[in-house]
């Protein structure tokens, strides 16, 4: 059987990119969640919300890039992409929950 090398060597000059890309994954991830959140809160106009999806696309790209940079196996790469798809729905699910729960439990305390 071919030996499976789980952790191939990473060349010294690849580290900076890995660090930057790993950060970008999270920064774009927050950007996506933040734009959707802010528009739902009415703090920014509704029409800005679609730009959130651009962040999502950038995030997906960065995560893909990261999985390549660290030489992850094709299986891991697929798992990561499925996770990205799940993340796409997360904020929508989240605000569905907020709306439903406010309907059910009423607005904040009226005192």
């Amino acid at each position: 059987m071919e030996p499976v090398i789980m952790l191939p060597q990473i060349a010294a000059d690849e580290f900076l990119r890995i660090f930057v890309v790993a950060t970008l994954v999270l920064v774009f991830g927050v950007g996506y969640a933040a734009l959707i959140t802010l528009s739902k809160m009415g703090l920014i106009p509704k029409r800005v919300a679609p730009f959130g999806y651009i962040f999502w696309i950038l995030q997906a790209y960065c995560l893909y890039d990261l999985s390549v940079l660290i030489h992850s196996s094709p299986f891991t790469a697929k798992v990561l992409m499925v996770a990205m798809l799940a993340y796409f729905f997360a904020p929508h699910l989240y605000f569905y929950l907020i709306e439903q729960s406010e309907k059910r439990y009423g607005e904040a305390e009226e005192s």
Partner: peptide, 9 residues
């Protein structure tokens, strides 16, 4: 009477 979703339970 309100129809409530399980997701908010």
């Amino acid at each position: 009477e309100k129809k409530v979703s399980v997701w908010t339970s």
